Computed example of a mutant assay.
Amino acid sequence: MKSITTLLGGFALAITLVSCDAEIIIGDPIVEPTLNEVLSSHDVWYLDLNSSQGNLDVPFMTRAFTMSFDFGTLYANNNLVGIGRAGSGIGIDVGSYDTFFDTVTINHDIDGVHEFDVIVHSFRRIELRDTFNGDRYFLDGYSINGFDYDQLFYNNIQYFLQEYGAWEKVYTSNEGAINEFDAENHLRFRPATDADIFQSSQDRNGLSTGSLYWDYTGEYWVEDASPGSLNKHLTLDYDFLGNDYFDLYVIDDATIELYHVSSGTTYEFKGRNFIQLKSTTTSKSRMLDVERARK
């Protein structure tokens, strides 16, 4: 393992090179930044789980989209609802941290204490290596103003659907042919091991989410209308009826619009019972998608 003491010099040089007025005097010592300075050098660190290596079984690492290190307090964006606004962009307080030479110890409010060696790969990229099992997490640093929260939201919209206990139908357009989906008044989206799943209910509106009877459970997936597009297609897999296809639009953080392609009907659903995620074993983990991609 390369120690941070052998890599921070490159980090310091990267900082020096961005200044056009910097004067380099041969023989002057290079003052390397401390680990605290490295961690706080960017407003947010995006967790690149696709590049990370190992079992990656630290829950708060696999459920966060970004992390921020701020004077001993650890912040994270675990939810897509409100992302970019929560904590002025850095998310919510999820724990504390302390540094010692090249090691950061994180005390998460729910998941407890975890220790990582920090390896600096470049000015914007660091690695947190779990000292217990060697798992490697890669993080990319950004300023709040330079981070594309909208792109992050739409790239991970399948998780946004999972951040409410249920979605209640509040509008059906007059236009469109009568179809089986007209009877569905509630939807729920959940992560699962082999595929993300949805549930549907025909119960009347106004019931609490805990009182709903879920008539059907099947798989769902969200795809880009075209590569890299913010426009999305939602597929609900009804085994006995075949797949239902929708154009998916996000109206706001709690409202989605589904355009039923085959019938031409437009529906609106409101999110009920928002799930604030710090980290629990039952909440979403982005590792599920990473594991499926590696199979």
Rank of each mutant, 00 (worst) to 15 (best):
E257H: 04
T255R: 11
S262W: 06
E223C: 00
D224C: 06
S229T: 03
D247N: 09
I197W: 02
T266N: 13
Y245H: 13
S263T: 08
S208M: 07
V250M: 04
D194T: 11
E257L: 11
G210H: 01
T193K: 09
Y249N: 10
R272Q: 12
G210I: 00
T255D: 00
S262Q: 13
K270Y: 10
D224A: 13
V261I: 15
F269H: 06
F240N: 12
Y238G: 00
L207A: 15
A225I: 05
D194N: 14
A254H: 10
I251P: 02
R272D: 04
I256N: 01
D224N: 13
V250Q: 05
S262V: 06
G206H: 08
G206D: 09
G210S: 08
Y216T: 08
Y220T: 10
R204N: 07
N243S: 08
L258N: 05
Q202W: 02
E219M: 04
E257C: 03
D244E: 13
I256C: 02
Y216G: 00
E268V: 00
T217L: 10
E223L: 03
T209I: 15
T266I: 12
Y259I: 05
T193F: 13
H233S: 06
H260L: 02
T209Q: 08
H260K: 05
Y259R: 11
L212V: 06
W221V: 00
A192H: 09
E219L: 02
D239Q: 11
L258G: 03
V261R: 15
E223A: 06
G242C: 05
D196C: 06
S262K: 13
L258S: 04
T265R: 14
E219T: 07
